[in-house]
Design a protein around this nucleic acid. Structure first.
Lengths: 214, 214
DNA sequence: CACTGTCTGGTACCTATCTACTAGGCGCGG
DNA sequence: CCGCGCCTAGTAGATAGGTACCAGACAGTG
């Protein structure tokens, strides 16, 4: 830690805020801000050119899901430590990001001190999960496995279309399957989400932050 | 501008980011950061005690809708200039905030320079709307008036309950009215939103950022 | 006062959706 | 090869929701 400073990069679509945070981190003796990216595409480019040690990555970006980009960013720069910046993380997001290779989470609602501490921890190879988030993750771990049923690819696809407000028939048309199939998928994903209807499933999905956009 | 510095306060539930932004603004020669609030309750208290000239207010706060709190904040401190910080503003949010007394909008996705410029403009009594947002507001203005139908109090209440995934019957029970009434409210608000079903109304509401939470 | 908008309650009809259960095809891992 | 999970498709009955009307109570306004 007394050697070269930690090279920190931030990817967040709220550029004014991200730039501010980076400026503040840059003033720490052991850190240097190497850049802000407002899109995933920018982040990809900058990970290559700016050689960051730690990347704070927002999970929601204009051009896609930040979590989904994690594997590629890691492939591009092995050894990079990625911590996901998040406002109100859906339960499954935590698991997904960890599986994708993130080393932790930093909640945007925590204090500056916690963020700088998280950056140092990430740089030194530790996992970073704020207590608040850890509390939500733990039940799933000692639940004996996948306590939280997770949706299949197709079910997620259907859920996305539900979120667009489409009827079962419309969804069937989009996916080129019968309404019966759609009905089954919805019944299944509803059960997994603990919902009793399409509407309730959507409400739950929204609350859990499962959906892109917005 | 050469007199006393502009006293700037930020209310945003992302405290780490808000604190960073404030720290950066504080370094401007003509500004001084006087505080960060993470909730509306805190903001109320601090507006009284810290005497800010300009308040950057997030529209989404843990304890309620920031826009809804604007009138009270202004009553508490007349002359306060409030600019709404926003990530992806729903169309109607723009109108509501202006009507509530905000002097403008600052999109979180813009650069730091634009934010500091916005603060100065707000302090000097000018309106602050970034071009990107203005472009969305204009059509409603020269639309001849309320081109965007706005929901009544009761309709919004119903919409919130819809967002919880409740059935019409459950909503009726909550509001202590008949199912028929709920059905009518939903028909009306759906028409206003351009939706053809409860589900679609919810989808639209989510996309427009009409709903609290999340 | 008359007009308007909102909230309320209602009727009638029709469609969409939910529930429950069945079942074939397909790919993957033991 | 067999079992398992997923995607697919179907049937049938019950319920919720949407459409299209109408109408009274009540508050605010010209």
């Amino acid at each position: 830690m007394s050697g070269s400073p930690i090279r920190v990069m931030i990817a967040d679509d709220h550029e004014a805020l991200a730039a501010s945070l980076l400026a503040v981190l840059d003033q720490e003796d052991d850190m240097v801000g190497v850049g802000v990216a407002g899109t995933i595409a920018q982040a990809r480019a900058m990970v290559g050119s700016s050689a960051p040690d730690v990347l704070l990555l927002d999970h929601r970006m204009p051009d896609g899901d930040g979590v989904a980009a994690i594997p590629e960013l890691l492939r591009q720069r092995p050894g990079l430590r990625i911590a996901v910046l998040t406002a109100s993380p859906g339960d499954h997001l935590l698991v997904e990001a960890i599986e994708a290779g993130a080393c932790g989470f930093v909640s945007k609602t925590r204090s500056l001190g916690e963020v700088t501490a998280a950056v140092r921890a990430a740089a030194s190879g530790e996992a970073v999960i704020s207590p608040e988030l850890l509390a939500r993750l733990l039940p799933r771990l000692h639940g004996g496995g996948p306590a939280q049923k997770q949706l299949t690819e197709r079910e997620r696809e259907v859920l996305d279309l539900v979120a667009e407000g489409l009827s079962n028939a419309a969804i069937a048309e989009r996916l080129v399957v019968s309404v019966h199939t759609v009905r089954n998928h919805i019944a299944n994903l509803s059960a997994k989400l603990g919902a009793h209807s399409k509407l309730e499933a959507l409400a739950i999905a929204v609350r859990q932050g499962l959906l892109p956009g917005r």
